[in-house]
Nucleic acid binder design. Structure first.
Lengths: 365, 365
DNA sequence: TTGTAAGCGTTATCAC
DNA sequence: GTGATAACGCTTACAA
């Protein structure tokens, strides 16, 4: 089956390429009869415009790139598929392609961005897990290239972003622990070059400050993601004096590793030591004990990010495309009052009134 | 910074576009001095060829598409990122882009393939989780379009594929249970339209047949993926008479759900009832008890699939690009002899000699 | 309402 | 070795 092109299609119709093109692309100045003839013959012959030609002429690639900081950082994170599905489904509806840029180890995400931008392979980009000093952002912002990030950063004022408020999330989690009576609250964090890590640290610190609890540096660790890191950090924390009675974790697997290490030390998570995770992966619900954690509407976030980039291409101003969504704290059984409560609160009295009111995320139009 | 194109670059060099193009693309008939001048000035001016123009002229898109049967089927599966990373990294090295096609619910994967193929958006495709009757395959094979699948199917003789041998995996797992003394062995499978499900069922049946154990239809269920499905299926299986003493599962989350349901019934997984999973997700190692399961080198598989498609574009014959890799059984603690052993075997005597010799996967050249 | 013709930025085919 | 020049298949002023 020889592929048919516009020239051949219009020849068979006895029309000019111009008219056929216009009929197919929905321009108004074509008579209804002509349009109908064109459309039906195009369908019959299986005509599909050559994307390269269309892109060359129009100057638009109808493609959006997604450049993860590192796909490796998503290993074991079951929500990567969700994020991609959200992005992809929105782009698909707009007839855009999604190019997934994989940054191999040893290569810089910036170089991958460059290749995409300078070769005009994409019309816009989506970035995630930005660094405090992120060359991708400097580069794109300097060129005025359309892009949106998942998460805020220092330059956020200048570009589109969607942040699921990690600062607020850790503030909520920390407040919850404080209300339960904890005062020695540890945080197993990760590389603070990640903006989302810094953000969550800020929430933790703010809650402590608001409660008048002095910070102890040794309670904050940067062991990072995964179960092993969590276990290692928990063991180290349990050697401190005084020992923390609660541990916040940068993500659920870290928390689950921490809980495992605690059990191995004869400490029951949720009783002797409280643990709170982040992400609400499926495992969180069935962990022992079920993990109190933070839920993020990640699929929805993917959709919105894609919609933001498309809006930028339509001329929207970045300043109008900046959203911060409220995360949701999911109370389960891995936290509770400290062994010798400083105040007389129960888990119930905390779950009740201070359960966070859920503000639904704003939807794309 | 105005984007510079070939015309402008050659004007500044005082050379023709032809020569510059040839110098840049490594053609032999350019003098070394000229090439050097061209390359250095191109770098200096930040010249990057326009992808659309290049694609239009060359007829190649330098893009490979990946069309998952459904991204939704990967939710909660932490290895999706691994597969993509493997594919992406190999394509990147060949200077190819990866288009991830998301098939929204309600749309047919075939239509997504069509769009990519007929718009010449991709030079080749990678498919996964093929169906027994898979219109994507019929379509691509009929057109002679280059593609490779993750997993075999009925038409496998005609196209490139890489299969991590699910039939062998389930045969191994079933043999292991038989050697431990089990005879009532159940299988919680999934929709048998998936070739990988049928394949695994075949391995299960072959092992039973080889051991002279008659099949019982009620021992095979098709509840599908995820923890809930596993729990439901396990409860149903435990109502059977005689009750199965072992349960094979289509994937780890299913197995973990089954174990949960068993515990709720007062049955200890690995003691009263053996359970074996599939995939070796991180959770498998830390489940209670740690789950015996099948490990797949999924990242490596992604790399090899990408390499296969690239080889097809170089003219390789599909028949030379068909590989079946040996999976690896990871023995842990969720299986053991049945409560009243038919024969006197211990778990140790099974783990020892019949632990599968690992044939390493063949590597891409 | 329809048609003509000029690009878009490359690569490939020839000559020189 | 190098350089005109013609595709590639489409969109879009501009004309009719």
């Amino acid at each position: 089956m020889a592929r048919i092109n516009l020239k051949e299609l219009s020849r068979r119709l006895g029309l000019s390429m111009t008219t056929v093109s216009r009929a197919l692309n929905g321009y108004p100045d074509v008579s209804p009869r002509t349009r109908e003839r064109v459309v039906s013959m195009a369908r019959e012959l299986g005509y599909a415009p050559n994307a390269a030609a269309r892109r060359l002429t129009s100057g638009r690639s109808e493609t959006i790139g997604f450049v993860p900081q590192s796909i490796a950082a998503y290993y074991g994170n079951p929500y990567f598929a969700d994020l991609l599905a959200g992005i992809g489904e929105t782009l698909h509806a707009a007839n855009f392609d999604l190019v997934l840029a994989c940054v191999p180890e040893g290569e810089a995400p910036l170089d991958v961005c460059r290749r995409l931008v300078e070769g005009r392979r994409v019309d816009g980009l989506i970035l995630d897990r930005t660094f405090t000093e992120d060359p991708r952002i400097d580069y794109l912002a300097a060129r005025g290239f359309p892009f949106a990030t998942l998460g805020r950063d220092r330059q956020a004022a200048r570009h589109a972003f969607l942040d699921i408020d990690g600062e607020r999330a850790l503030e909520m989690a920390t407040e919850r622990l404080i209300a339960l009576g904890h005062r020695e609250i540890a945080f197993i964090a990760a590389d603070p070059r990640f903006n989302f890590v810094r953000e969550r640290l800020a929430g933790y610190r703010r809650a402590l400050a608001d409660a008048g609890i002095p910070r102890r540096r040794s309670l904050v660790r940067h062991d990072g993601f995964g179960e092993e890191a969590g276990a290692r950090a928990a063991r180290a924390l349990m050697r401190l004096c005084p020992r923390p009675t609660a541990i916040l974790c940068i993500e659920d697997l870290t928390a689950i590793g921490a809980m495992r290490a605690l059990r191995a030390l004869g400490l029951r998570p949720g009783r002797e030591v409280s643990v709170i995770g982040y992400n609400d992966i499926p495992l969180a619900r069935i962990a022992e004990p079920p993990l109190t954690t933070i839920r993020m509407p990640i699929r929805e976030a993917g959709r919105r990010l894609a919609a933001m980039v498309l809006a930028l291409l339509e001329g929207a101003a970045p300043a109008d495309l900046q959203e911060i969504w409220e995360p949701e704290l999911v109370p389960r059984e891995s936290d509770g009052p400290p062994p010798s409560p400083a105040r007389g609160l129960t888990a119930a009295s905390v779950n009740g009134p201070s359960a966070p009111p859920r503000r639904g995320p704003r939807r794309p139009p």
